[in-house]
């Protein structure tokens, strides 16, 4: 099939960007969305033109690298799907497809569709861990953790850190991303010692990075490729309030 593409091109972080028209003329329904872009790029490269820059790596929905807004929706129209797992059979002959980068103050554009998401690493660095050095860990079965709690923690831990939640949010909030990590660690006994410090430190770092706050729109949950529920944000907010009452 043939598609019309409108793709965001921007040469560098400080330059102005614009949507540029491209034609994708040999699209097979079995292609993934990124393979469709590979083919467009192969054509550009053969003509000696600068290829469209976009991020991807594992191409099986787990590394969190791919980050495209397709027709206004981060990761495109399929629910619970990263854009690398979106297939072209979802589109039809003659469709116009607009492709843009994640847009948020905290995610400056590096080039074309590639953005800098290091702000999310700095939020984790502020407290998204259990502070244990290698060496003195007790036996893995020393603490029994009820299956239900382990499963709920795993539901939250499934976050792939792609940033779609931020890109979908009108406030560019990272609350779902943070809520997932804070839930994961505060549900487990291992995370108790730093429970209060962690939530305060991560939220302060997120504020400093320019992520917005949450106004309960639920856009994040709707686009999350791992379908992480918004209840993680509620849990984070409770943790934060408790921490503020206890420490200030």
């Amino acid at each position: 099939m043939k598609l019309k593409l409108k793709i965001w091109r921007q040469t560098g972080p400080t330059s102005a960007g614009r949507l540029v028209d491209y034609a994708a003329d040999h699209v097979s329904p079995d292609m993934s969305f990124l393979e469709m872009l590979d083919v467009v790029n192969e054509g550009l490269i053969k003509q000696g033109e600068d290829a469209i820059a976009f991020d991807s790596d594992c191409r099986e929905g787990i590394c969190g690298t791919c980050s495209l807004v397709v027709n206004g929706i981060p990761h495109g129209p399929d629910r619970g799907t990263t854009v690398c797992q979106l297939h072209m059979r979802r589109f039809k002959e003659g469709d116009t497809v607009t492709i843009e980068p994640w847009r948020a103050v905290a995610f400056p554009v590096v080039k074309d569709l590639v953005v800098d998401r290091s702000a999310m690493d700095r939020v984790i660095a502020a407290g998204g861990y259990v502070s244990v050095n290698v060496g003195g860990a007790p036996d893995g079965n020393a603490i029994a953790i009820p299956k239900e709690i382990a499963e709920t923690a795993m539901d939250s831990a499934a976050c792939i850190g792609c940033g779609a939640c931020v890109a979908a949010c009108k406030n560019a909030s990272a609350h779902l991303f943070m809520g997932a990590k804070i839930s994961h660690l505060s549900l487990l006994p291992q995370g108790q010692a730093e429970r209060q410090r962690r939530v305060v430190a991560m939220i302060e770092q997120a504020d400093a990075e320019g992520f917005g706050s949450c106004s309960n729109e639920g856009e994040c949950e709707a686009v999350c490729p791992k379908e992480i529920p918004i209840s993680n944000i509620a849990r984070m907010t409770r943790e934060y309030m408790k921490a503020m009452l206890a420490t200030r």
Partner: peptide, 18 residues
């Protein structure tokens, strides 16, 4: 042991053990 201490959510049985 190290990974459990870090909070890696390994699968568990109903008794809470790995």
């Amino acid at each position: 042991d190290q990974c459990v201490a870090q909070g890696v959510p390994f699968a568990r049985e109903y008794g809470g053990l790995l």
